[in-house]
Write a protein that binds this DNA or RNA. Sequence first.
DNA 1: GCGACAG
DNA 2: ATCTTGTCGC
Length: 225
Amino acid sequence: MKIKDLHSWNVGRSEAIEIQRLLRENILIKENPIRPSLVAGVDLSFPDKNIGLAVVTVLNFPELELMQYSYHVGIIERPYIPGLLSFREGPVIIEALKNTPEVDLVFFDGHGTAHPRGLGIASHIGLFLEVPTIGVAKKLLYGKCDLPGNSRGDISPILSPAGELIGYSLRTKPKVKPVYVSPGNGLSMKQALEFSLKATGIYRLPEPTRQAHILSQKLKGQLNL
DNA sequence: GCGACAG
DNA sequence: ATCTTGTCGC
């Protein structure tokens, strides 16, 4: 897909935080009249401590059948620091996305706006793309929220310390730990929830990222290291 | 200073 | 994320 080049990834901790503060101003969370027919999911595995294997799946929507996938293996330059995940995984993800055909929506493993500076990995990478992005995380990083009801589709708002709505906890599978959904860029909070639920089948995680995770693990195993 | 902390 | 098999419970 078409990728923009907004800034260098080779930056230190404080500069990375400054970049996040600047980029957050470009995030647009607003209703978008999209009718996605192709959606993508991104996930990574680590064949070695500093080697990352990013996989991008492409599924038709709303059928959710795997159409194809692309991947990229690259060197991981930075450690994992809560709040700076995109600087660690971004470079490899961007390369994998370059090998991916155009899609209408992209799902990420991690948060979007539900982030200390409103720029989780789904938002950050979303700014490099020309299509909407959504972040679906397995754990909360920032803010607080109660547990949603026990039925599929039940939700509970994620509130920042200031009381702003930054995402939702969503029960995608009955009586199974909820996931945390927040828009990355280019669509509304409500749409992020809507598409996340529609992209989820009988499992806890949305099918696009679930398939990417499975493939990433499988490819890692086939890679002889 | 203490606790929290995506993948 | 990663090191790792079986096993308890709905």
